[in-house]
């Protein structure tokens, strides 16, 4: 099970990022907490940027140090003939996830946090 978690570390971090940016953004906007003129909300924007940076940092760390990430996920040291394959797939998934997290996080810089815009 731990090996499967290791394999999917990047997409799992992407899922964490999406949950942590969408949930609070929806709630804070619904209650109008921190919402200013034109639907801007610095609290929401800041939260999105911090969460995105954190998740992207972790994905980048896993990408650069797969051995350590494997130990963290499974509690054992990497071994076996499948290790190069697992590392390659994990890294590629982490790279794709980094891109997906960047896409989602960029929204906070480009759009007002709580406006309908129509």
């Amino acid at each position: 099970m731990g090996t499967l978690v290791f394999l999917c570390l990047g997409p799992l971090l992407w899922a964490v990022q999406l949950t942590l940016i969408y949930g609070p953004q929806s709630s804070l906007c619904a209650y109008g907490i921190g919402t200013g003129q034109g639907g801007s909300n610095l609290l929401v924007a800041g939260l999105i940027l911090i969460v995105s940076a954190l998740c992207m940092g972790l994905a980048a760390a896993a990408l650069l140090r797969p051995g350590a990430a494997y130990e963290l996920a499974t509690g054992t040291r990497p071994s076996g003939e499948t290790w190069p394959f697992l590392t390659w797939v994990m890294r590629a998934l982490a790279a794709l996830s980094l891109l997906a997290m960047l896409y989602a996080g960029l929204g906070a810089l480009l759009l007002p946090a709580c406006a309908q815009l129509r």
Binding site: S26, Y103, L111
Partner: peptide, 20 residues
């Protein structure tokens, strides 16, 4: 009627899924 930024999150994911 969801805020535009929420839509952006999901639009971004829709673009990301096109890559694989």
């Amino acid at each position: 009627g969801i805020p535009a930024l929420s839509l952006a999150f999901f639009s971004a994911a829709s673009m990301a899924v096109a890559i694989p």
